[in-house]
Write a protein that binds this DNA or RNA. Structure first.
Length: 572
RNA sequence: GCUCCCGUAGCUCAGAGGAUAGAGCGUUGGUUUCCUAAACCAAAGGUCAUAGGUUCGAAUCCUAUCGGGAGCGCCA
């Protein structure tokens, strides 16, 4: 990686000549403007602030040292102290060879020996996954691939909320549907789940148990059991067709069974961070009167509170209701404490933006346990507004029901679904018109990229796979566009790293688009004059090697996003 | 009222404090006897919401205001 090489050269110069300072953050990047040579750094302007020397002088000094290295061909200084660098062709050729020889492993970093726990989706097992789950599902999956490629050992986890009121509602709804199957006119309760999938579950219950549960009071356990089982199977099936696989499924019920709920409460008690609402002292922030929570004031009397407001939360949170039953938050605390006990180097939660309110809460609860949360990260994924012909499609037109993820993936295809939800930064909400996936022009970035892959595959298919190019062959590559593509290819591993650091898969897409655009442009510009396949054997080999590397980088990029790259667009 | 995200071209969005703010769509005009035209080239289009501040330098960081979204239950 040439950027890394230049960075290290600069590091060394700075540390030798300003031994007393701490190495500051500075940039080395591919120059955007060809006037600025190959690479550019802002180191001297940064150093100016630290050393109080003029940035132009610093730049001059560093430039002299840099140019002494045989790998640096030319250094130019531009006001107020930009250092522009032209590197030798030789290291560019070497960089290309690295990409060619690493093949599908190009961009995959060596193991860091570090582990990440990545929790995402964690949808309640009370019904099928729907469009609202799509973005965080694909985002989590892509991030896990990117983290793996940048050297982390990743565990993808799905937390199953298999306890609580919603689960009881599920059981009761199934029972009502079950009774209806026997012609008994049981009305659904107001809060019951209306979906037809419940009827299917009830039918299966009838098939398995017959009329066993008619007019009995002890049906709930059985109904919950079959409901959770079938809903989870359905969730797994949909994840499967979407190309998403989890490593661990963590049951909330298991926390209860192991007695970890009481353990948490005891621990807080020991730490002296609990108080009883009836004995609240002045300064205890039980609730904000201006919040919407105030609407529920009638139900809010008594109970045991945790002093979360002392640990960064806006207010104290109730842990145990007046009737002695802990609220769900306690299980969530127990679950997150388990995550920390399992000793991961990074713990990442991917939440939909509608769960943003939990971030402060959970962090405060962890701090109250004395846990260091510096390796605890949240990625809040914003909503996508899907349109078709300019109309909102969040709800299906016919039934008015929420569109299932299954229907959606079957409708647009897994690749397009991933593309839609991964193409933009996770923390921007955006509009997407579904008509675009049928478009055959450049607005459909997915096809644009896949087309380039197929185009190259078609050209290179006439040649043997190249493992490595000899220097005399590489030297045939002299066009500026060829050097630019090599620089781009060379920067790919950096893009993977940055994407892992920021948890932003869309960076891979944009990088890929830029590389592809350079290729198409190159291809067209020289279509009549400097063809890739020519009578000159060595030149042809060199260019086939170059575009093979471009194809490989496209392939590897799409792979990080879980998207396939086809050899041909004709038989797609 | 409070918290979080966003505000960049007509539209949809990029832009980890750097040089002349970019791309696609749309608009206008060009490129196919030739390795995939699902492509390419060019033109037009901007007070980076507003006002202050920090800095050698701000779309980017800080503060305030305005506008859009999500959330603020003893539901999970």
């Amino acid at each position: 990686m040439i950027i890394e090489l230049i960075r290290q050269l600069i590091n060394k110069i700075v540390l030798t000549n300003w031994p007393s300072i701490r190495l500051p953050k500075f940039t080395v990047e591919i120059s955007k403007n060809s006037k600025h040579l190959d690479y550019a750094s802002n180191i001297s302007m940064i150093l100016e602030g630290i050393t109080k020397q003029s940035s132009n002088l610093i730049a001059k000094f560093i430039a002299e040292k840099l140019v002494a290295d045989p790998r640096i061909e030319l250094v130019d200084i531009v006001n107020p102290g930009f250092i522009n660098i032209k590197v030798s062709n030789r290291i560019l050729y070497q960089a290309l060879n690295v990409a060619i020889s690493k093949g599908s492993q190009y961009g995959v970093h060596e193991s860091l020996g570090k582990s990440v726990l990545l929790e995402f989706v964690s949808a309640n097992p009370t019904g099928p996954l729907h469009l609202g789950h799509a973005r965080s599902a694909f985002m989590g999956d892509a991030i896990s691939r990117i983290l793996k490629a940048s050297g982390y050992n990743v565990t993808k986890e799905f937390y199953i909320n298999d306890v609580g009121n919603q689960i009881e509602t599920l059981g009761n709804t199934i029972y009502a549907r079950y009774m209806q199957l026997f012609g008994l006119n049981i009305k659904l309760k107001e809060n019951a789940y209306p979906g037809e999938y419940i009827i299917d579950i009830a039918r299966h219950l009838k098939e398995q148990d017959g009329d066993k549960w008619i007019n009995r009071n002890d049906y709930l356990q059985r109904c919950i059991e079959i409901g959770i089982k079938e809903n989870l199977e359905n969730i797994q099936k949909v994840l499967n067709i979407s190309g998403i696989e989890f490593d661990t499924w963590y049951s909330e019920k298991s926390l209860h069974d192991k007695g970890l709920i009481e353990a948490i409460l005891n621990k807080y008690q020991e730490l002296g961070v609990l108080y009883n609402a009836d004995e609240a002292e002045t300064g205890n922030k039980i609730r904000r009167e201006d919040s919407q929570a105030a609407k529920f004031i009638i139900n809010q009397e008594g109970g045991t509170f945790l002093k979360t407001s002392c640990f960064g939360d806006e207010e104290d949170r109730i842990l145990v209701r007046k009737n002695g039953i802990p609220v769900y938050l306690v299980a969530d605390i127990a679950y997150h404490k388990e995550k920390f006990d399992r000793k991961f180097d990074r713990i990442i939660n991917i939440f939909g933006a509608d769960h943003a309110g939990h971030v402060l809460k959970i962090c405060a609860c962890m701090r109250a346990l004395g846990i260091d949360i510096s390796n605890f990260e949240f990625l809040l994924v914003q909503m996508v507004h899907l349109l078709e012909d300019g109309k909102d499609i969040r709800l299906s037109k016919r039934s008015g029901k929420i569109i299932s993820l299954e229907d959606f993936v079957n409708h647009v295809g897994a690749d397009a679904a991933r593309f839609i939800f991964l193409m933009k930064s996770p923390n921007t909400q955006f509009d997407f018109d579904l008509n675009i996936i049928n478009s055959t022009s450049k607005d459909n970035l997915l096809y644009y990229i896949q087309y380039a892959h197929a185009r190259i595959a078609n050209i290179t298919s006439k040649f043997k796979k190249i493992e490595k190019l000899q220097e005399d062959i590489l030297e045939k590559l002299i066009l500026p566009e060829e050097f630019n593509m090599i620089k781009k290819i060379d920067s790919y591993p950096e893009v993977v790293k940055l994407s892992a650091l920021t948890l932003e898969p869309h960076r891979i897409f944009f990088f890929c688009k830029e590389l592809v655009s350079e290729f198409h442009s190159y291809y067209t510009k020289y279509k009549y004059t400097e063809k890739i396949i020519s009578d000159n054997y060595q030149l042809t080999q060199a260019r086939i090697g170059l575009i093979s590397a471009v194809r490989q980088v496209i392939f590897n990029s799409l792979n990080l996003l879980g998207i396939t790259a086809s050899e041909s667009m004709y038989n797609k």
